[in-house]
């Protein structure tokens, strides 16, 4: 599918979902003439209008055969592997977010660095394990020791 057309359709979908959610905004007895839901409704309708106009303009251009390719370039010339790669990275990051409090900062960050490197095809060996552990320790020193940020201790707190 044409990228701009998809962009317009996604914009329309977001607008509809937003308007649906805006319908649940409660009204207040203190309400002014605009109300708490006034601006959200206006924004929702504006996004829907702009997105539909974008879709229409693009569809007409495609039908007339005058549509130029959307300007993106680089990695996005081949979108399927780019999306697959980004999805994998997001999953690793989500796993890190999920693990952070249960397992603690040090192991979670070491996991994040190690997993991201392996995902980017860095060979698994002792050096990589050392880099991940050393990196996590350096960041822990920076945040927990130097900046006095309370990073989650996780299972280690119970063991100690």
């Amino acid at each position: 599918m044409d990228r701009d057309l998809a962009c317009g359709l996604i914009g329309t979908a977001i607008a509809l979902a937003y308007l649906n959610a805006a319908a649940d905004i409660p009204t207040s007895a203190l309400g002014d003439t605009v109300g708490a839901a006034g601006v959200p409704h206006l924004l929702g309708y504006a996004l829907a209008a702009v997105s539909v106009a974008f879709v229409a303009q693009r569809a007409i251009a495609l039908a007339r055969g005058k549509a130029a390719e959307a300007r993106t370039g680089g990695v996005f010339d081949d979108p399927v592997p780019a999306f697959a790669s980004a999805a994998g990275t997001v999953l690793i990051c989500a796993a890190f977010v999920f693990l952070l409090e249960p397992v603690g900062y040090l192991p979670a960050v070491a996991f994040l660095i190690f997993a991201l490197c392996v995902y980017q095809r860095v060979a698994i060996n002792a050096r990589l394990a050392l880099i991940a552990t050393g990196g996590a320790f350096a960041l822990w020193l920076l945040f927990a020791v130097l900046l006095s940020v309370r990073m989650p201790a996780g299972i280690w707190a119970e063991m100690i």
Partner: peptide, 30 residues
Amino acid sequence: GSLFKGVIAALIGLMIATIGTDPVTGVGRF
């Protein structure tokens, strides 16, 4: 390059800005 995309991007930003407590009535939104 595309005014449509710029306006859509701005509206998304404005929509995110509406999340939270309403500035006048104090009602929670989204």
